[in-house]
Computed example of a mutant assay.
Amino acid sequence: MVRKGQQGQQQTVKAARRPELRLPELTGWGGGELEPDGDYDGLEFADLDLAGQEGIGARFMDCALRRCALDEAGLAKARILDSVLEGVRGVGTDLSGASLRDVELVDARMGGVQMHGAVLERVVVRGGKIDYLNLRKARLKDVVFEGCVLVEPDFAGAVLERVEFRDCGLRGVDFSGVRMADVDLRGVSVLEIARGVEALGGAVISPGQLFELAPAMAAQLGVRVVP
């Protein structure tokens, strides 16, 4: 799909830049609990129960977290850089104010993840299912959601730039007050907008999605459709 610029020329939607991860040879995590402001570099956390551990402000660089439990883990303001999170699971994980850059999140099974105020740049979320993801007032730039299901995600007040949704489901999404630029929703298989249909300026949708969203858009404009 294309759009016309001010001079009438056609412009394609700007694609998100994906992370290019090349993890070094990793060292297995030797055990113990995460520590606030901890510094973790070149480590692999595999098949661990990290539930309830406190890593507030921690830094993860060139790391892999595989099949770890993150229930109620405290990772507020953590920095996750050039890393892979694969098969992680958990409820109530706190990543509020965290920074994720050049990260792949693969096949996650999570619920109630707190990421309000977080900053995501060059992040791919591939596969899996996340319920009640809180991204209020977060900043997302060059982020791709691919083949995943998001149930009642909350983007209220967030800023989305070059964000793509590919072959994924958005159920009960809240876009209230979102600012969008080059947000591609055409690949969403299920698009259910609970709130914020008026904030879709800057997004790209398909003709079929426009037809499905027409009643909500008409209601937002105060238009009555009478046969």
Results as ranks from 00 to 15, higher is better:
residue 176 S to N: 13
residue 51 A to S: 14
residue 158 A to M: 02
residue 124 V to S: 01
residue 158 A to H: 00
residue 103 V to D: 13
residue 173 V to G: 06
residue 225 V to N: 06
residue 122 R to T: 08
residue 22 R to L: 12
residue 108 A to R: 01
residue 116 H to L: 09
residue 149 V to R: 13
residue 71 D to T: 06
residue 136 R to I: 10
residue 83 S to L: 11
residue 185 L to D: 05
residue 112 G to S: 04
residue 143 V to L: 01
residue 128 G to L: 04
residue 24 P to Y: 01
residue 196 G to R: 14
residue 54 E to F: 11
residue 220 Q to G: 14
residue 146 E to A: 11
residue 105 L to Y: 09
residue 44 E to C: 08
residue 88 V to K: 06
residue 123 V to G: 05
residue 97 G to F: 01
residue 211 F to C: 15
residue 131 D to Y: 01
residue 198 E to I: 07
residue 24 P to A: 03
residue 33 E to I: 08
residue 78 A to F: 00
residue 40 Y to I: 05
residue 127 G to K: 02
residue 154 D to A: 12
residue 226 V to Y: 15
residue 127 G to H: 00
residue 215 P to T: 11
residue 79 R to K: 06
residue 71 D to V: 07
residue 221 L to R: 09
residue 95 L to F: 06
residue 21 L to Y: 02
residue 96 S to H: 08
residue 83 S to F: 11
residue 135 L to Q: 03
residue 199 A to S: 14
residue 133 L to T: 07
residue 51 A to W: 01
residue 77 K to C: 08
residue 137 K to V: 13
residue 167 D to I: 15
residue 196 G to S: 11
residue 30 G to F: 12
residue 41 D to N: 12
residue 172 G to K: 03
residue 59 R to G: 05
residue 60 F to H: 00
residue 24 P to M: 03
residue 135 L to S: 06
residue 160 L to V: 07
residue 202 G to W: 14
residue 169 G to W: 10
residue 175 F to R: 09
residue 207 P to D: 01
residue 3 R to N: 08
residue 6 Q to A: 10
residue 49 D to E: 06
residue 89 R to L: 03
residue 169 G to L: 15
residue 113 V to D: 00
residue 20 E to A: 07
residue 135 L to T: 14
residue 66 R to Q: 09
residue 19 P to Q: 09
residue 184 D to L: 00
residue 227 P to L: 01
residue 145 F to D: 10
residue 170 L to Y: 02
residue 182 D to P: 13
residue 207 P to A: 02
residue 157 G to C: 04
residue 49 D to Q: 10
residue 27 T to Y: 02
residue 198 E to K: 07
residue 53 Q to M: 05
residue 32 G to K: 05
residue 27 T to K: 10
residue 179 R to V: 12
residue 77 K to F: 03
residue 148 C to N: 01
residue 149 V to T: 12
residue 64 A to E: 11
residue 111 G to N: 04
residue 56 I to L: 07
residue 113 V to N: 00
residue 95 L to Q: 07
residue 161 E to K: 13
residue 189 S to F: 05
residue 85 L to R: 07
residue 167 D to P: 15
residue 188 V to N: 03
residue 40 Y to D: 09
residue 225 V to T: 05
residue 14 K to D: 10
residue 127 G to P: 12
residue 78 A to S: 14
residue 170 L to Q: 10
residue 185 L to V: 13
residue 194 A to S: 09
residue 3 R to C: 07
residue 4 K to Q: 12
residue 191 L to V: 03
residue 215 P to A: 07
residue 157 G to K: 01
residue 60 F to W: 04
residue 215 P to C: 05
residue 55 G to V: 11
